[in-house]
Amino acid sequence: MTKPVNPRGTPIKEAEAVGIEFPVVGKARYNYTTGEALGVFLAGLKQGRILGTVCKRCGRVFVPPRMYCSYCFRPVDGWVEARDEGVVVTAVASYIEATRARAEKARVVGVIKLEVPGYKFDDHFFPGIMHYICVDDEAVKSMGIFGMRVRARWRPVEQRVGSITDIECFEPAGP
């Protein structure tokens, strides 16, 4: 005898799914309070700066910032500015949209380990953000993108709104 014995359930096709269709558009809107950490971070982006916080007890720099050290459980000791430049830690090429539809063209996205003058980071913990990387998907497939130096391509000042999208993408910065 193989368990489970006679598992039940009634498989259906999409077209047969008689029930209630319930539109949700407009029904779950939020006005997130950014708080001090992300509020300052977003304002920094608007000025073309990437800001982080620092815990002087353990020496960690937090980008994206928070007001507490996740490791020492104490308030952070202030703000530091990261360079808008760093190296790619990992990256992928997306051929689909958030909706699962096929994308018109591949979009490369990855995690960038940022540089902060006066601080050194290993592979274990580092200030890093996820963003688009403006390179060809071949750079991903060949794995050449790992360790690539990239720099933020900022939107023009007048288009910036205080969002992560104030950076258009990161682009190769040369060696």
């Binding site: 950014t34 996205v109 794995m143």
Partner: peptide, 26 residues
């Protein structure tokens, strides 16, 4: 995803897995 620093990039869930997979492969 983080509603403020990540969701505006319009992510698909598979991104995060793919990033982890690729890092592991590397």
């Amino acid at each position: 995803w983080d509603p403020i620093v990540e969701k505006p990039l319009n992510p698909n869930l598979i991104w995060i897995f793919a990033m982890e997979m690729h890092r592991y492969m590397y």
